[in-house]
C-alpha cells in the first residue's frame, strides 16, 4: 500500500480501526481532541460507534462495559482527563479487561497548559489508580508508530487481558509523516471469559471484587504473574549507534527524535555516543539498558518532566554507571543544540 502523509492523531484512529476496534468513547480535551474528531468521522464509516461521553469518568466506564463484551474498544485523552479516568482504569485492570487508552500528554500539574510534557510517566507507567496493578505502556515516536503501536496495543490487551496505554505527546500527535498502513485485522477470536449476550457466555462475570483476603491475595498474585510474563515477552526498544558508544543517551517519545539528531551531529564531531529509546515503558527495557550501561562511561537521560523515567534507569543500572539528567518542563521542548551542549557539559567534561 502506498504511503500517506498523515498526522499522528489521525494515524491512531486508523490504526485502531485496522486493528478491528469498533467502539470509541471519549471526551474532548486539547491536545487529544483530534483523536475524538477522527474517531467521530471514521468509526461509523466501517460499522463502528463513536460516542462522546458526558465525562472522562463516563468514557472509561463505557469502555469497561464494552470491553466486558469482548470487543475491541478504546478511549483517548490528555493528562488531566487521564487523572479522571484512573478509577476506571484500576477497575479494568482488576477485572482484567482488554482495552486501549491513549494519553497525549500535556503540561501539568493541574490545568497546566496544552504544550507537550512527559510528566505523566509515573502516573501511567506505575499504574495510576489504586491497587497492585501495572499496565503495558507503549511510547511511539513517529506517526508510523502511532498506527503500528496502537494496533499492537490491541493485540497485547487481548493476549494478556489487560488495559494497554499509548503514551504520546502533542508533537507526535500533531506532526505529519508518511505512514504505510498494515492490512486490516478481519477476525478477532471469541473470548471465553467475555459477555456476548448469549447462553454460552452468560455464566461469565466481570468483576474486580474478591471479598476474601486470601482470594484477593491470590488474584493479586495472578496479576503479578501476568505482569512478569509481560516483562518477559513484551519489551520493546530501539538502539541507535550503540555498538562502540562510550556515552549513552536515553529518552522516549519526541525526546528520542531530538536525541537521534544530537547523536548524528555529535558523531560527525567524532564523539562516540549512542542512544537507546524505550518503546515499551512498562515493561521497561532494563536488561539492555544494564548491558549498555556496562559498556559506556556515562549516561544522560533526557525527559520533558521533573525526572521520572530516570528513576527506572537508575534501578536498571543499579547505580553502577554515572547517570546524568537533563530536563525541560512546562511544555518547553529542547532544541538539538541544547542537548549537544548538555552532552558536552555533563558527559564529555
Amino acid at each position: 500500500m502506498a504511503k500517506l502523509l498523515m498526522k499522528g492523531n489521525d494515524a491512531i484512529v486508523r490504526g485502531a480501526l485496522l486493528a478491528g476496534c469498533r467502539l470509541y468513547f471519549g471526551y474532548p480535551i486539547t491536545p487529544a481532541s483530534e483523536i475524538a474528531e477522527g474517531a467521530a468521522a471514521y468509526f461509523p464509516k466501517v460499522g463502528g460507534t463513536f460516542l462522546q461521553a458526558e465525562s472522562e469518568v463516563a468514557a472509561i466506564n463505557m469502555l469497561y462495559g464494552a470491553a466486558s463484551g469482548g470487543v475491541r474498544a478504546m478511549t483517548a485523552s490528555s493528562s488531566p482527563g487521564i487523572s479522571l479516568k484512573m478509577e476506571g482504569v484500576s477497575y479494568a485492570a482488576g477485572a482484567e479487561l482488554p482495552c486501549v487508552i491513549v494519553n497525549i500528554m500535556r503540561g501539568g500539574p493541574g490545568l497546566g497548559n496544552i504544550a507537550p510534557e512527559q510528566a505523566d510517566y509515573n502516573q501511567v507507567v506505575k499504574g495510576g489508580g489504586h491497587g497492585n496493578y501495572k499496565l503495558p505502556v507503549l511510547a511511539p515516536n513517529s506517526v508510523q508508530e502511532m498506527c503500528n503501536l496502537t494496533m499492537k496495543a490491541f493485540d497485547i490487551a487481548d493476549k494478556y487481558r489487560t488495559p494497554v496505554f499509548i503514551l504520546a505527546d502533542g508533537y507526535i500527535g500533531q506532526m505529519m509523516e508518511p505512514v504505510e498502513f498494515p492490512e486490516p485485522v478481519m477476525h478477532i477470536d471469541r473470548k471465553d471469559w467475555a459477555l456476548y449476550a448469549d447462553a454460552e457466555s452468560k455464566h461469565n462475570l466481570i468483576s474486580s471484587i474478591f471479598l476474601d483476603p486470601e482470594e484477593l491475595e491470590e488474584h493479586n498474585r495472578k496479576l503479578q504473574k501476568k505482569y512478569a510474563l509481560i516483562e518477559q515477552n513484551e519489551i520493546r526498544f530501539e538502539t541507535f549507534m550503540c555498538d562502540d558508544a562510550e556515552h549513552l543517551l536515553i529518552g522516549y517519545g519526541i525526546v528520542s527524535r531530538i536525541l537521534k539528531t544530537a547523536v548524528e551531529k555529535l558523531r560527525s564531531e567524532g564523539v562516540k555516543i549512542g542512544m537507546i529509546r524505550p518503546v515499551s515503558l512498562f515493561p521497561f527495557p532494563k536488561a539492555i539498558i544494564a548491558e549498555l550501561a556496562g559498556k559506556v562511561k556515562n549516561i544522560l537521560v533526557v525527559e520533558l518532566s521533573n525526572g521520572q523515567m530516570v528513576d527506572d534507569v537508575r534501578l536498571a543500572t543499579e547505580f553502577k554507571t554515572p547517570i546524568h539528567f537533563f530536563n525541560r518542563m512546562g511544555g518547553v521542548v529542547p532544541a538539538t543544540e541544547e542537548i549537544i551542549e548538555q552532552v558536552k557539559l555533563q558527559l564529555l567534561r
Partner: peptide
Amino acid sequence: IQAAHGRAPAVATGIKRA
C-alpha cells in the same frame, strides 16, 4: 458485570453498544 460506584449506566452504555 460489577461496576464502579455510580458508573453502572456508563458501563451499561458500553456493553449495550457492543
